[in-house]
């Protein structure tokens, strides 16, 4: 009788150990999967936001002569021009989209006004932006915070 109890206790202990180990393994696996999924979703969202933002900005300003590529700060920039309506003064404004200090930035100013790159508004994490016009096609190459390069080709219907 005593011997049977000993075996029973050992079996119970062993089962408890296996249960604990498996539970721990399961938790660690779950946490790992969750971390991977979360980081992939975040990376994907950051890239999508940056590229979609750039494409949407260009399409929104797609009128003759309003989209041009140039230099601002230390790198390439997009200059999107818009003219105030007839009821207003008729001043010409421009939105400058560029990368500064690890961020995609946007700056709205009267065209030609001297403004520093750091005065812009942060849009998304981004390491670099290269813009190149090839006929009616605007090729934007961005490098995200993880160093991954992505390209967005945008058809400028009004021409660049």
């Amino acid at each position: 009788m005593r011997r049977t109890s000993g075996i029973g206790a050992a079996a119970a202990g062993l089962t408890a150990c296996i249960f604990g180990a498996a539970l721990l393994l399961s938790l660690v696996t779950g946490a790992g999967v969750y971390r991977q999924v979360e980081s992939r979703v975040e990376r994907s969202a950051v890239r999508r936001v940056g590229l979609s933002y750039l494409a949407a900005k260009v399409h929104a300003h797609d009128v003759a002569g309003a989209v041009r590529v140039g230099q601002f700060g230390d790198g390439d920039a997009l200059f999107l021009t818009e003219t105030a309506s007839e009821t207003d003064s008729g001043d010409v404004y421009e939105t400058v989209v560029y990368v500064y200090d690890g961020f995609l930035m946007e700056l709205f100013r009267v065209r030609g006004a001297a403004m520093e790159p750091e005065t812009g508004q942060r849009i998304a994490d981004m390491r670099s932006l290269e813009a190149e016009a090839d006929g009616a096609l605007l090729r934007l190459r961005v490098t995200d915070a993880d160093g991954v390069r992505e390209t967005a080709d945008v058809y400028v219907r009004s021409g660049t």
Partner: peptide, 10 residues
């Protein structure tokens, strides 16, 4: 999207 834009631009 990139290919479609390039196709339309061409």
């Amino acid at each position: 999207r990139n290919l479609a834009e390039a196709y339309q631009a061409s």
